[in-house]
Every structure is written in structure tokens, then in C-alpha cells.
């Protein structure tokens, strides 16, 4: 249960950062927190008490008490996707700073409704 609390705590903190902070780097950290929380949540969905890793590294392991491998595969994909998003976000932050001389999204208002 504590894993769930930790995972959703991370997600909530990330969302709070995104809603309140206006510095782009801090917002990117917020996105990263959300993604980490999601990964932790997915892993804990597949967790089994006293379970082993789903790898038959030595003979005699009982497949019945292995943890669910599918969330782990999903997390592998999710990690790669969040790395990709982060890389793009950092590149954009570099360019934004070059154009505007600031990373404060509250001050960058060239476009509005």
C-alpha cells in the first residue's frame, strides 16, 4: 500500500509544481516527477508479496510466485517515452532562453487568446 501512496504522492507533487511554478526548468522537473510516479505505480500494480523477479536464472524457481512481468515491460516503454519527452523539453528550454533571455513562462506572452 505504501507504494501506492508514494507513487500518487509523486504524481500529485508533480502536478502541483506544474500548476504553481512558472519557471520552465521547474515545470520540466514536475513532468519528470509525474512520469516517475507513474512508473512506480505501474510496477506496484504488478507486485506480489514475497514474489521473485520473473527471470528463470536458476533451476527450481516457482513461476506461481513470480511478479507480473507485463507492468515491467510497460514501464520499460514508459521510461523511454519520458526520456524522449525530457530530451525534447530540454532542447526547447535551451532555444527559449536564447530567444527570450528568460525561462519564466509568466513573462513570455507573445501569444495569447
Amino acid at each position: 500500500m505504501v507504494y501506492y501512496i508514494g507513487a500518487f504522492g509523486l504524481i500529485i507533487i508533480g502536478l502541483y509544481v506544474l500548476m504553481v511554478k512558472r519557471n520552465l526548468i521547474k515545470m520540466i522537473i514536475g513532468i519528470s516527477l509525474i512520469n516517475t510516479g507513474l512508473n512506480l505505480f505501474l510496477i506496484s500494480v504488478g507486485f506480489i508479496k514475497l514474489g521473485t523477479a520473473p527471470i528463470f536464472s536458476k533451476p527450481g524457481l516457482n513461476p506461481k510466485i513470480m511478479v507480473d512481468p507485463l507492468p515491467q515491460a510497460m514501464v520499460l516503454t514508459a521510461i523511454v517515452i519520458s526520456v524522449a519527452t525530457l530530451a525534447m523539453a530540454l532542447a526547447l528550454a535551451i532555444r527559449l532562453y536564447e530567444h527570450h533571455g528568460t525561462l519564466d513562462m509568466g513573462k513570455i506572452k507573445d501569444q495569447k487568446w
Binding site: G46, D68, P69
Partner: peptide, 11 residues
């Protein structure tokens, strides 16, 4: 607790 049929099938 173990809950998914799909995961058990894989194992």
C-alpha cells in the same frame, strides 16, 4: 496479490 491471468500466463 497475484491478480492477473495474463501475467500468470506469461510466467
Amino acid at each position: 496479490v497475484s491478480k492477473t491471468k495474463v501475467g500468470n500466463y506469461y510466467n
